[in-house]
Design a protein around this nucleic acid. Structure first.
Lengths: 137, 137
DNA sequence: ACATTTACTTGCAAAAAGCAAGTGTTTTAA
DNA sequence: TTAAAACACTTGCTTTTTGCAAGTAAATGT
């Protein structure tokens, strides 16, 4: 976990230094909601992240303790990326971001079921997402 | 509200296009938690945002409907910046970001009271922040 | 009337993002 | 058993964004 000088001691600033860019939370979303776990799967995101940028963001997320790299059970050629506890703790933020977006843009069909769950029982959804992710740790 | 092509139809991506950079949420934080409302006050943030970047971010936040510019009651030389409804709806996200940071970094004294309130009664804190901000609309 | 405050803008250098192509190891298929 | 394909990246280059320092113009205070 690399230490670089903080811009300020504000907790919001601290957080943004860890994931406050256009890509990091999309990677977290894929690991969290889309169950992607390899470099190749992450590279195929809808937003078409460039491969060098993906590598850079994965490194930065790892340095920030949000994800970890593990051996993939299926093959030595693959790498298994997964959220750490610290990364899983971003679930509530991802949920609130989804709920905010729902108020101000159209939600695609494939995400509506998830949004419905978040709306019906936010705490429950978060607990559940946690449980699922924790079973991989 | 300028329309630029979306990277994808994902709600998280939509949100990040509106405030997913190193500065936008700090400006929102200042408007929301620090009761700053003029260009000069925002420019004096702990993180020392460059004046041209501040101008650019304020414009982008305005184009995204998150803040609005109004005449300042005290002087024609001043501009009053404030959160719109859409901007106020970011409160839950800001709260979750604060709570995440609290788990992983030291919180400065001046923010501890606020964090205590968020922890004691998250919903209540959010309702209250809303009420305060709405009284300015 | 003149200095100061306020909200910016401008020009340039540095950093980051984006694109296309390439590398090296591991796995699959002939 | 060997050549092709899959996989996880790297490298080199261009474009875009950020950051710094200085400047501008209107409104205000003295």
């Amino acid at each position: 976990m690399k230490t670089k000088k903080k811009r300020s001691d504000c907790p919001v600033s601290f957080s943004l230094e860890a994931f406050g860019d256009k890509w990091s939370l999309l990677i977290v979303r894929d690991l969290m909601l889309k169950k992607k776990c390899t470099y190749g799967e992450l590279a195929k995101s809808d937003e078409k992240i460039a491969t060098n940028i993906l590598a850079a963001r994965l490194l930065s997320l790892e340095e920030n303790g949000i994800i970890q790299k593990l051996e993939h059970p299926d093959s030595k050629a693959k790498v298994l990326y997964q959220l750490t506890q610290k990364g899983m703790d971003l679930i509530p933020i991802i949920v609130e971001i989804n709920l905010w977006a729902e108020k101000y843009t159209d939600i695609p069909e494939k995400r509506k079921e998830l949004l419905a769950q978040m709306n019906a029982d936010k705490e429950g959804f978060i607990r559940n997402a946690f449980k699922e992710l924790e079973s991989n740790l």
